[in-house]
Nucleic acid binder design. Structure first.
Lengths: 334, 334
DNA sequence: ATGAAAGCGCTAACAT
DNA sequence: ATGTTAGCGCTTTCAT
């Protein structure tokens, strides 16, 4: 397979430039010679070397993806969306996990530059000034996925997290429920705080006061930590009639803490998760959840990035995808 | 950031060859000039262009990963192992999903060659002759992950699936249980069939006959399809005292089918899953499962691949990682 | 210990 | 419509 474009040119009796032209469709070539070239390519089993191409053209047809952790359900699903659309536009993906550490993120942006990716899809818990500065320095087209930056200077694709949590809280308030708790990830997590604000706004609009004791924060968006925090919450004798959780896993952490004490949902607590991951239908009771278009978040991010790369006209640099509440068993009151 | 090695050389007052040497540590450079070069690099904010490097050295420091679907829990976890160790050895990952389609797999191997990856980690449901031929043609070092090839010609890292299923079946047999069902993925899925053989061997050794009616196959390793198949199985009036499932999701599909009819586990059926994914502890009852060292499967695959790439001595081209049964609530008899 | 120079396999002017 | 040629930014002989 280690033939070059020269070999093909010789075999076809044309110049390498012509071969390049039929390869890239970058100029008109006579049907006849095109056929000769294609026959030669076929015969030799020639494949163009993407690295050489990348060096010569300064476009590698690869997109860098930086995210906190691939093994996280939500990210894995977003990634699938990224990958599918990238493939559709003939881009490849270079994947790296940052573990949500800013120093790693900054470092990775640098190595993405070294790899000469054409652009970057960036998923992070928070977009700091340092990060933004690194983007600018690297001069890489970037799309933020599933978050945005506070200043709105960087193109992004996400849902409106504040409204989503507002809607989720209203879902309970409209049923006349008081004692609604919020259960988020860490306070350093931008999305968590946006959702918390939505929760607080809904409460305030309804004339209910925000009780600090009903606001829980897990160490991350995963099940295990949430389970511990919820267990401690219940052990201290706290009680919530309903819980708005910032992820499905967090909701399940709360659910199992309740179960550990002999309770269950929806009988003892109404639970509303976030993300509509596959978990929410696998688990019993099935989990009511705020659906983010997870796959689409990735898919649309890449589409936006390709527009940036091709300098296509762009309507909106800050894309807001719709969310919706999917009602299942965990909020069905007897 | 678009400085070249020439800019650094000029700034430091040396030749580009010297800069290259300090960059790669490929030859001895006087401490003094090394310092000058490093100062220049620092000053200019120079970063080496990995694409140019790749073209000149014919080694790109990237590993291609082809797997059926990133958004699958098991694969996502394996991938994390791949990524971590790759990073540790200063390799990057180019990721592609094949959807378990052979034509895509073959196509992707080709594009991985185009990208000039140094090696490949390949995860697939079955290794056909066609695939093996493509590997050879591409002349790419490959490690199979979580499977092996029937002929054992390609380096691989996996568990012994036959034994694992044998052990799982024995787990029930040793408790004097008859009527043990096997619930796998599709019959075209190599790992499913290996596990099925282990199940059958255990039954035969115990003097029990293999009943076709107690062998179920889901369309894939996921929850949804398994749920339907299990529901149909129960609707037809079949009954199993225990189920050895080929994945955690398949086990949960069976579980919920039982629940849909008012039953539960472990009361009405003892359930044993496979993979020890995060699901198994999130769900209630907690799922007994055959633990594969999922992360390690990926990690060890990459380690093996790096040995291949560096021509380090290799003890074993067919690595078998250990499995174990983790006993939880779903198999606890009253 | 360092420099000069020839590629790596391709794209993209520039010619014709 | 096709060919010639100069790079792209490095690594790697080969000299010195």
């Amino acid at each position: 397979m280690n033939k070059t474009i020269y070999d093909v040119a010789r075999e076809a009796g044309v110049s390498m430039a012509t071969v390049s032209r039929v390869l890239n469709g970058t100029a008109v070539v006579k049907e006849e010679t095109k056929a000769k070239v294609q026959a030669a390519i076929e015969k030799l089993g020639y494949r163009p070397n993407a690295v050489a191409r990348g060096l010569a053209s300064k476009r590698t047809k690869t997109i860098g993806v930086i995210l906190p952790d691939v093994s996280d359900l939500f990210h894995a699903e977003v990634l699938r969306g990224i990958e599918d659309i990238a493939m559709m536009y003939h881009y490849h993906i270079i994947l790296t996990s940052s573990d949500a550490r800013e120093d790693r993120e900054i470092d990775l942006i640098g190595t993405m530059w070294e790899k000469q990716v054409d652009g970057l899809v960036f998923i992070s818990e928070r977009i700091t000034k340092e990060i933004v500065r690194t983007f600018e320095q690297a001069q890489l087209p970037v799309v933020l996925c599933a978050t945005d930056d506070p200043e709105g200077r960087i193109p992004s694709v996400a849902i409106d997290n504040e409204s989503a949590a507002y809607d989720a809280t209203r879902f309970f308030l409209d049923q006349g429920i008081a004692n609604i708790a919020f259960f988020g990830g860490p306070t350093t997590h931008r999305v968590t705080m946006e959702r918390r604000h939505g929760y607080e706004r809904a409460l305030q609009e309804a004339g209910q006061s925000v009780q600090e004791s009903l606001i829980l924060h897990a160490p991350d968006m995963k099940y295990e930590g949430a389970h511990s925090v919820a267990a401690e919450f219940l052990r201290q004798g706290h009680h919530a009639a309903a819980v708005v959780a910032a992820s499905d896993e967090i909701a399940l952490g709360y659910l199992n803490a309740v179960r550990d004490r002999g309770g269950n949902s929806p009988q003892d607590v109404l639970l509303l998760g976030f993300d509509n991951t596959r978990l929410s239908t696998i688990v019993r009771p099935e989990l009511t959840t705020v659906a983010q278009p997870t796959y689409d978040l990735g898919a649309v991010s890449v589409r936006l990035l390709t527009k940036l790369l091709n300098e296509e006209p762009i309507d909106d640099y800050t894309v807001r995808l719709p969310h919706s509440i999917i009602e299942r068993t965990s909020t069905k009151r007897g």
